[in-house]
Design a binder for these strands. Structure first.
Lengths: 341, 341
DNA sequence: TAGATTTGTGTAATCGATTGCATTCTTTTG
DNA sequence: CAAAAGAATGCAATCGATTACACAAATCTA
């Protein structure tokens, strides 16, 4: 009996209609004080809980928001999600999590699942959706479901985004390394078909050009974000005729791998060699040799993304609600790039 | 027009009934091949997507599962959630995330929210729900919604749990430290009103007793899981007349803080002093002096929790489906507790 | 070929909450 | 005091999908 109480149960109990119960529960002014009081008491006594599915079906709003990320168990994404959750929870939204594992088909599958689930919005960090599959994105837009990219975005009409200024982050980092006296700066790049990595590369390139340093293709290595690829890349660099004297890695993990290799080779950091990471993973701060890195303020990013979503939802009617928020990255200059001069 | 297609739209298009459309889409054998083909094609052409809310309302199953954790942005919880998601996603369930921030009222609020949302199950790592509020838990059980505790559990009838053997982990760690020649082992404890911390304490205590080492209350310090409290606790220990020669910290972060302090004092690790953490946070492996720690296999824990949920759902009728899974912890013995001896 | 099966669809109720439009009963107004 | 206004509630449709039951048409059986 205590399994499920509906407004009909309450209505029957009080010999009134479900409509009246509903109105009483929703503080409709056309209900008499006495009835309202009675309904509220009875609802409480019978342990009534509103069925949000029924409400959602009728109203067309599920109060669920989908979040799509490559994976949840990295500091960055976990923190963004935390930010999103903190921004949305007070407004009565629940967050549904989907992981893509950087696989395109999972990305498509997740979008479909979330549409099926009738989410009120989708916040996603896009991985590898190719041009030809853009129509999956278009479909979301057509259904007028707010779509917001964070961190990893794509230029698509009507899609808002929250990112950091990757170009600036990269430009400033490169200038910092130059200021430290490094003139041969290697660069660990991510997949440049993703905007964030293209932007970071541009920042690196431009800073070198602006400082009259030639670009050396040998110094530019594509890596995945893990320790081992950082080690391998460092090995390659050290085997060059003219090895670099700094590495700017767009991944903290790869930066760590590089540092390990450099140490193995007896290279002193930062005296002989500077290393700069990206992402402010917790470990970068904890190392005996703390690693300089770029903070992307993921918590903030999540909160802003949540806010952008709320703005869109509350301004559905008004046409122009697209917004591109760009957060400023923070350079955390630590031991791995601070020369005692 | 492309905004939302329902089975009624398809029915109208083909001059048939929604019932027929529904049956065709669900591969009901009573539908002729020709109609089925026609419906499938039309559904596809009109970009039909099943409304899971409607299905959920009718069937009473939302295919959503709620997960309640203290916070999402730590390696441990993020990994457990990942495991849960990977276990449940193939079965068609979505995961809804809630954070408690270790606050009791948020815990209660989250349970209510999830019940409102008609989740099919709740997986939670309980924080601070006091005895007097146990009825919120009871309510979930009464509604016959599978409830599964992971990591942090509470002894409550009809609630399954997935944990690691904290007692064993702690006992073995303590014995390991003793085997390394440490005879004055300090212990950083968490809140012992939580079962996991009580169990860990018991393991520590018993191992000392079994090895004829007296318990020294000065060596037992309550800490929160962060770097600073580890530093402070280490300071306290070093100020003792007879300082310890090992620390077993139930938090990796506190272990790190302690190590930093010990180094400041010129104490050599592991030669003069061994340190053992708990949790296998990523940084423990990356440090120049890698930190020994206990791996709780969070991914595995999440997957098992998902499996336990699925078993419960699929055996609703059978009475006895409660299960208490205990995973074996893995000691990761690294530099911080390995004497060259 | 009449009656029995089989096959394929339609009808209508259901899940739980909300809400526009009656309807009833009071109260007020001229 | 009759009529109009107001207050409180009931009726019934709706959101979208499923399904027990009914029914018609086609096929088969004896």
């Amino acid at each position: 009996m205590s399994e499920k109480t509906t407004i009909y149960d309450i209505a029957k109990e009080l010999n009134i209609t479900a409509a009246t119960v509903s109105r009483a529960l929703n503080n409709n002014p056309k209900i008499s004080q006495s009835t309202r009081k009675l309904v509220l008491e009875t609802a409480n006594r019978m342990n009534y809980k509103q069925n949000r599915l029924a409400l959602a079906l009728r109203s067309g709003r599920s109060n669920n928001v989908g979040v799509i990320v490559p994976r949840i168990n990295t500091n960055f994404f976990a923190s963004v999600i935390r930010g999103i959750e903190e921004g949305l929870h007070p407004e009565g939204y629940q967050v549904i999590i989907c992981q893509t594992h950087e696989e395109e088909n999972r990305e498509i599958e997740n979008i479909n699942t979330l549409l099926n689930a009738q989410v009120d919005g989708i916040l996603m960090s896009i991985s590898n959706l190719s041009e030809e599959n853009n129509h999956y994105i278009e479909r979301v837009i057509q259904k007028k479901i707010p779509l917001i990219f964070f961190d990893r975005k794509k230029e698509i009409n009507n899609v808002s985004s929250v990112t950091i200024d990757d170009y600036q982050a990269s430009y400033q980092t490169t200038e910092h390394l130059i200021a430290q006296g490094c003139d041969k700066i290697a660069y660990f790049s991510g997949d440049r078909s993703l905007e964030i990595y293209e932007e970071r590369y541009r920042g690196y390139e431009q800073a070198l050009l602006d400082n009259n340093i030639a670009i050396n293709p040998d110094y530019i290595i594509n890596i995945k974000s893990n320790v081992q690829e950082g080690q391998e890349a460092a090995e390659k660099l050290l085997a060059l005729a003219t090895p670099p004297n700094a590495i700017f890695s767009t991944s903290d993990f790869a930066a760590l791998g590089a540092i390990q290799k450099l140490k193995e080779h007896g290279i002193k950091i930062p005296e002989d060699f500077c290393v700069f990471g990206f992402g402010n993973e917790p470990f970068t701060k904890f190392m005996e040799l703390s690693i300089s890195t770029v903070d992307q303020s993921p918590l903030e990013m999540g909160k802003v993304a949540a806010q952008v979503f709320l703005d869109k939802i509350n301004n559905r009617d008004k046409k122009k609600t697209e917004s591109q928020v760009v957060l400023m990255p923070k350079l955390l200059i630590r031991q791995s790039s601070t020369r005692i001069a």
